[in-house]
Design a protein around this nucleic acid. Structure first.
Lengths: 195, 195
DNA sequence: TATTGTTATACTCTATAACTATA
DNA sequence: TATAGTTATAGAGTATAACAATA
């Protein structure tokens, strides 16, 4: 019902060719990758995600870096599955959130606090602007910089996104037990040296 | 002296143009990316890693997915800095470790338990084999499959790598307090659904 | 001279299609 | 027909160099 079902569902979605990082928008055609197909595609119901075999993984399962990576992969998959209908990547969600909480800030400031390079942030903002979710306006005080805002549509989308994201957090709380989620976040912040 | 100094040092290294993911080997020339330089490079001592500004990030700092991502970035940077002399990426280290603990297993088995696609694992193994760290041998029972082993050199390198990695874990224990590291790993395993 | 936004570019990682050889 | 390894390819993410407009 709670966390387990939702997270498990996300994994299954991936096993069935999930959109993963770049979820295709509702009506858009799925992204084609790799060599161009020469024949029509077949159903392919193969369960490609491996079951646990009898390999010895004890050398890795207690390593912070390894568990961190596996956890991040799982969470991002889950996130992408939940946000598929909104067509939002985790990175895009974080950008919208920071803009909403800091309207009118410079492009480079938004990028910097998120650990995104100025140069790569240009394309990200282009995409959000093209979708009518964010907008750039020239700063009155400094003609070099762009002040960034969310549009009405961006605010509306973010409102829905926040709800979905809150549900994910609740599922984590269910999965990790009372206080477990808070403990996890606190430990991760120490490791990441946030604040 | 313990965790804080080591981890902080890693961040500084990055700020000064760290090798990050693909640490250049000791003697090799650093990798050149982006547009071809038209002038000679300058020192560039700029501290490009931003100081915390007054932006409101409260919407993100309690989100599991976001803190997870930032933590993973920090840990991988730290890892890469520590392993620079060995010229090992986190992924390569995990491969060597699994091979060492499971000698003679099929190529695809190793890849699968690590969540690496067969197709991408071919190149990874090529590199390790080219460096004389791992080797493939044809299976006697199934001519299709390759049994994978570490070479003498691979075992020696891994021994050193394990030491460095253990030091990192100890630094996490120091940073996160008594039991903090174990708690973190336990929570991450739940989230990642390992075991 | 330094900063902001930008384009062009290149490397890494990840993902899919298709081929070869075995089973 | 299915599996193991492989090659070729494509997209996303991320990194650097250089430049124009502005400070």
């Amino acid at each position: 019902m709670g966390a387990e079902d939702s997270l498990t569902q996300a994994r299954k979605m991936r096993a069935q060719k999930a959109p993963a990082q770049n979820a295709a928008s509702a009506g858009a055609a799925p992204v084609r990758r790799g060599r161009k197909p020469m024949r029509a595609e077949e159903p392919d119901d193969v369960d490609d995600v491996a079951e646990a075999s009898d390999l010895d993984l004890t050398g890795l399962t207690s390593v912070v870096g390894y568990t961190l990576r596996r956890a991040q992969m799982a969470v991002f998959e889950d996130f992408s599955a939940r946000f598929a209908t909104l067509d939002l990547t985790p990175a895009q969600y974080s950008v919208l959130l920071v803009i909403a909480d800091n309207p009118g800030r410079k492009q480079s400031e938004i990028a910097r606090v998120l650990g995104i390079q100025r140069t790569n942030f240009v394309v990200m903002l282009d995409q959000l602007e093209k979708r009518g979710l964010a907008e750039r306006t020239r700063s009155a005080t400094d003609a070099r910089s762009h002040a960034v805002f969310l549009t009405k549509a961006g605010k509306t989308l973010l409102k829905n996104a926040r709800k979905i994201q809150s549900a994910q957090e609740e599922d984590f709380a269910t999965l990790l037990g009372p206080g477990g989620r808070d403990t996890l976040v606190a430990l991760l912040r120490k490791v990441a040296r946030i604040d």
